[in-house]
Each structure stands twice: as structure tokens, then as C-alpha cells.
């Protein structure tokens, strides 16, 4: 009997603590991994009653997941198009652009293949899948520079981190990734700038998902991202201001 009480007490304690805490899921583009992890840490310090779960992936994939009903409270993408899809489906309200990013070429440390620009991309080049914003932007950048890479020498990463890993870990000659990812992996890759004329500015929108069960906490997280502190973290990671 005493044992039964003990279990009941434990259950009560368990329920009590669960009730006072809320948890939100933030689905964010893979290129935001470093910055959002830091912002989430600061957010958790300021809001000890909120648990933040970060879900990183390609923006296209994350949008598809949310479209399929995967629970997410905040969506932050590397592409306004992915957010527009969700807005059209009525899954998010208004969104704010909170950061911008540009593309760059990365090579093995020391640039052993002597890549100086887009026209030098020979051998196997790592690009994001076309459904991910980084893939779409890379295609835009290559088109603007008038460079065609045959599909047979393109290995496609599911998101920007996988795309970069093909150079950092694998044997790809070069990859086209975001400036921010190149900077985060500075010890493993070298950066070759893409001239502004052919570069693309990616806009990062953030929005609270409409059917969020913790809309209040979700809004608080969005505010933290667009706040002064959030911007500081983002610009340290290499993101541009909107």
C-alpha cells in the first residue's frame, strides 16, 4: 500500500512539472544550425519554462513536413518561396525576413584544384538538391555566370550541410554553399568568392505556424530571433541584415 502511494506521488510530481513547462519545435533551414543553436540557448536562459526543440533540414523538406502536418511552432527558411507555399496553404500567418545570405564556392583546404571562379568548376561538384533553396540559388548563380555543369558530374546533397560535407569529408572538387556555412567550416574548407554580379542574395523568412499549440512561446522565440541579440548572433555567423 505504501508503495502504491509512492507511485501516485511520483506521478503527481511528474504531471506537475510537465504542466508548468511548455515546449516548442523550431523547424529551421540547415544553414541556420549554428546561429539558431546559440539563439535557442540564450532563449532558454531567458525563458526557463520553455523547452526548445530544433529541427534542422532543407527548407523544402521542412516545408513539406509542415504541409504534411508535422508539428512545428516556428518555421525559419532559407527561401521565401518555401514560406510562400506554406502561406498559400494557410499554414502560417505573416512572415518577416530576418537575415540574408549569399553563396560562395568552397574547396578542399589549400584549393588543390586551383579553383578561381565558377568557370573553373570541373570534376565532381557538390550542389544542393534543386528542391532545397541552396540548390535553387546555385542554379541561378551558375546561370547568371553562364556556366553549365553536366548533371553527370554533380553530386546532390539533401541540404547545405551534406553538400559541404562532400567537399570537407569526401572527394568533391568544390561545392556551392552559403557564405555562413563556409565560415562555420573554415577549418575544413577554403572559400572562393563569387563576384557580386552573378551572386544571389537569399532572404530568410521566419513565421509562427498557425496551428501551433504554444503560439505565445513561439512568438517569443520569433521575437528573440529578430531582436538585437538575435541579430548580433546572426551577423557573427556571417548573415547579412535584411
Amino acid at each position: 500500500m505504501r508503495f502504491g502511494y509512492a507511485i501516485a506521488a511520483l506521478l503527481l510530481v511528474g504531471c506537475g512539472s510537465a504542466e508548468s513547462r511548455t515546449s516548442i519545435t523550431v523547424s529551421a533551414a540547415a544553414s541556420l544550425t549554428g546561429a539558431f543553436t546559440e539563439i535557442a540557448d540564450e532563449f532558454a536562459a531567458a525563458h526557463p519554462d520553455v523547452d526548445v526543440a530544433l529541427n534542422f533540414g532543407s527548407s523544402g523538406q521542412l516545408a513539406a513536413q509542415i504541409g504534411d502536418g508535422a508539428p512545428a511552432d516556428v518555421a525559419a527558411f532559407a527561401d521565401t518561396a518555401a514560406m510562400d507555399t506554406l502561406a498559400k496553404a494557410g499554414l502560417v500567418d505573416e512572415s518577416d525576413v530576418f537575415a540574408t545570405n549569399e553563396l560562395t564556392i568552397v574547396t578542399k583546404p589549400g584549393n588543390p584544384s586551383g579553383v578561381t571562379g565558377l568557370a573553373d568548376l570541373k570534376g565532381v561538384v557538390s550542389l544542393c538538391v534543386e528542391t532545397a533553396p541552396c540548390g535553387k540559388f546555385a542554379a541561378q548563380v551558375l546561370a547568371a555566370a553562364g556556366v553549365t555543369i553536366p548533371e553527370g558530374s554533380v553530386t546532390r546533397g539533401a541540404d547545405v550541410k551534406a553538400t559541404l560535407a562532400a567537399v570537407a569529408e569526401g572527394d568533391a572538387v568544390a561545392a556551392i554553399v552559403y557564405v555562413t556555412d563556409a565560415r562555420a567550416a573554415a577549418s575544413r574548407v577554403d572559400e572562393v568568392e563569387i563576384p557580386a554580379a552573378s551572386n544571389t542574395v537569399a532572404e530568410y523568412p521566419i513565421a509562427v505556424v498557425r496551428n501551433s499549440t504554444n503560439a505565445e512561446a513561439a512568438r517569443a522565440f520569433r521575437d528573440a530571433v529578430v531582436s538585437e541579440g538575435g541579430r548580433k548572433v546572426l551577423s557573427a555567423a556571417g548573415f547579412g541584415a535584411p
Partner: peptide, 12 residues
């Protein structure tokens, strides 16, 4: 996908 990559018609 890790070792051979993801190249259409070659390793996909």
C-alpha cells in the same frame, strides 16, 4: 550516399 555521393545515373 556518404561514400559514393548522389550523382544521377552514376551513384543515385
Amino acid at each position: 550516399i556518404t561514400f559514393a555521393g548522389n550523382i544521377a545515373g552514376r551513384t543515385q
